[in-house]
Amino acid sequence: MPFGLIVGVNSHFHSVIFAGVLLREEKVENFEWVFREFVKLMNSKKPVTVLTDQCRAMEVAIGNVLSAMKHRWCKWHVLRKAEERLGALYGKNNQFKVDFHRIVNQMLTKDEFEAAWMQMLSMHALEKNPYVYQIYETRDKWAKPFFSGIFCARMTSTQRSESANHMLKTYVPPGSAMHVFVKQFNKLLYDRNAEESFQEKRTHLVIPHILSMCPHTAPGLQVFD
């Protein structure tokens, strides 16, 4: 059974596991149930932004249940999918890869993105490539300029979720029975909550230091109570 983790970021910029779910099938109705139950767990407070892979069933479910939320695709998955679909082009022409990654990572405005994209199409004769056309049509899901003004906690990929999955595997031995899986998953949650509590206490104990370079004071660290 597929197991999914819903992961976010706390005020210390550490990963937080909000929920875990086992599904029999990755269908639209299953994902709709997941998102409805998650909102209940969060006391009806819906997330502002969600990053996922390019799963079509999940995308439809998010649109049906969390239509007001900003849904973006994981940048790493977009690049991996592009490499799979354009593998020959990646291998034969390294300049295309350079140009494509520059557009994905460095374009800051929509005008810059559009101009660079059209230039790439012309340079590499991709005007009629069906996959390139497809990802361009969904650019609002993955292109950096379309993230402007959207709170993402500095995340552009599902790397935190992947890291949490890897961490879970260190707690749960392969082939574990269900009761062992649940027990070890709860242990992971306990350890993560303990770490967050430690960081919260540490924050309250440390006095903030503010750097001041005012002309009437000696340069250095100035402490404000």
Rank of each mutant, 00 (worst) to 15 (best):
Met120Ala: 08
Glu137Thr: 14
Thr138Met: 12
Met118Pro: 06
Gln134Val: 07
Phe146Pro: 01
Arg154Met: 14
Ala153Gln: 08
Gln119His: 07
Leu121Glu: 03
Lys144Phe: 09
Tyr136Met: 08
Glu137Ala: 13
Phe146Gln: 03
Lys128Val: 06
Leu126Tyr: 01
Pro130Met: 00
Ala153Ile: 02
Phe151Leu: 12
Arg139Asn: 05
Trp142Cys: 05
Ser122Lys: 12
Ser148Glu: 11
Phe151Trp: 09
Gly149Thr: 03
Thr138Lys: 13
Gln134Gly: 10
Asn129Trp: 03
Cys152Thr: 15
Glu127Ile: 06
Trp117Gln: 05
Val132Arg: 01
Arg139Lys: 05
Ile135Cys: 00
Gln134Phe: 09
Glu137His: 12
Leu121Gly: 05
Tyr136Asn: 11
Ser148Arg: 12
Ala143Arg: 03
Glu137Arg: 15
Glu127Ala: 13
Leu126Asn: 00
Ile150Ser: 03
Ser148Met: 09
Val132Lys: 00
Lys128Ile: 07
Gly149Tyr: 04
Pro145Trp: 07
Trp142Val: 04
Arg139Ala: 02
Ala125Leu: 05
Glu127Thr: 08
Leu126Ile: 03
Ile135Ala: 04
Glu127Gln: 12
Phe151Ser: 11
Ala153Met: 06
Arg154Ala: 12
Trp117Val: 00
Arg154Lys: 15
Thr138Gln: 13
Lys144Gln: 10
Ile150Asp: 05
Glu127Lys: 12
Pro130Ala: 06
Glu127Leu: 04
Arg154Asn: 15
Phe147His: 11
Ser148His: 13
Leu126Thr: 02
Tyr133Val: 13
Tyr133Glu: 14
Tyr131Lys: 00
Met123Lys: 15
Ser148Gln: 14
Ile150Gly: 02
Lys141His: 11
Lys128Ser: 09
Leu121Arg: 06
Cys152Lys: 10
Leu126Ser: 00
Met123Ala: 15
Tyr133Met: 15
Cys152Val: 12
Met155Pro: 01
Arg139Tyr: 01
Asn129His: 07
Phe146Thr: 01
Trp117Gly: 02
Ser122Cys: 08
Lys128Ala: 08
Val132Trp: 00
Ala125Thr: 03
Gln134Leu: 13
Thr138Cys: 10
Thr156Gln: 10
Tyr131Asp: 06
Phe151Gln: 08
Ile135Phe: 10
Ala143Pro: 02
Ser122Trp: 06
Thr138His: 11
Arg154Asp: 15
Ile135His: 04
Cys152Glu: 09
Ala116Ile: 07
Met118Gly: 15
Ala143Thr: 07
Ile135Val: 10
Arg139Phe: 05
Lys144Val: 05
Ala116Phe: 03
Trp117Met: 02
Tyr136Asp: 12
Cys152His: 15
Thr156Ile: 08
Ala125Ile: 00
Lys128Cys: 06
Gln119Ile: 05
Gln119Pro: 01
Thr138Glu: 13
Thr138Arg: 13
Ala143Gly: 04
Tyr136Gln: 09
Gln119Tyr: 05
Tyr131Met: 01
Gln134Pro: 02
His124Met: 00
Thr138Ser: 14
Ala116Asp: 09
Met155Asn: 11
Lys141Thr: 10
Leu126Lys: 04
Phe146Arg: 01
Thr138Trp: 11
Met118Arg: 14
Lys128Leu: 10
